[in-house]
Design a binder for these strands. Sequence first.
DNA 1: TATTGTTATACTCTATAACTATA
DNA 2: TATAGTTATAGAGTATAACAATA
Lengths: 141, 141
Amino acid sequence: MAGRSKRRDLAAMLAPLVRDTIAAERPVLEAHGLSMWGYSVLVALDESPIRTQAALAEAIGADKTRIIATLDELQAQGYIERHPDPADRRARLLAITGPGRAVKDAAQQEIQQGEERLLGELTDTDRRVFLRVLDRLSRRP
Amino acid sequence: MAGRSKRRDLAAMLAPLVRDTIAAERPVLEAHGLSMWGYSVLVALDESPIRTQAALAEAIGADKTRIIATLDELQAQGYIERHPDPADRRARLLAITGPGRAVKDAAQQEIQQGEERLLGELTDTDRRVFLRVLDRLSRRP
DNA sequence: TATTGTTATACTCTATAACTATA
DNA sequence: TATAGTTATAGAGTATAACAATA
């Protein structure tokens, strides 16, 4: 059986799109006083608390060393809580706070509203399929 | 009318996917002696020659200053030709060579074959819709 | 000894600005 | 003077390795 029809590489199509969406997020996050990594952390902790910083870093695709400054800042802003685990004082129990959830929800609403500029061009079917496939592919191990 | 159903941000889904696809490309390109930007340049020039380096840089989403070393290397490898435009000797006419097209085709085939690991999980309909939408969104101005 | 978090260092990548050569 | 290309410098972001605290 022969190959499939000619197409561009996935990375070549994904790269400019991710660049645009991140560029669109930047001013929104800045207006809410959040960094890109800070927002990532809030989104992750909004789903559920996490028991170690290393696990959080892995969950958001970051290095454990480079989220520390982010966590310091989020804690100073009162958006997360960071307590030593009584059962193992090496680990830090991480959780989002009420104000943290509020600022994350506000920023996220604005971000997704902006993304309608893109998604709004699609038919309902295309939109639904695209988001479903994208969600699935992005969750691969 | 109320909002749409809850979803993740586009950037949050796109980012890990683009990271994985680029990570998958890296060893393939290295085996063919190409850098990421070098491969981008060959793909762009394969479509059509370009009259200035600035235009090429913009076409691949790069800065004009940071593709110069790449062009030097591609030229030394014999994969591109770079001639001063006789009509305006400030500009450089850029074109891919036969060997350039050959190495680009070989690398691209291997890359897209690897991407089947992802796309092969999808139904024919999902695959077709996803690629069509992705292609469209990635070409937006 | 192994693991969690932290800090320090080095390295890569990118952006900015200055320089040349043509026009 | 304006533009295309080039080079040099500085800055941001990232990765690596060493360190301190706890197990």
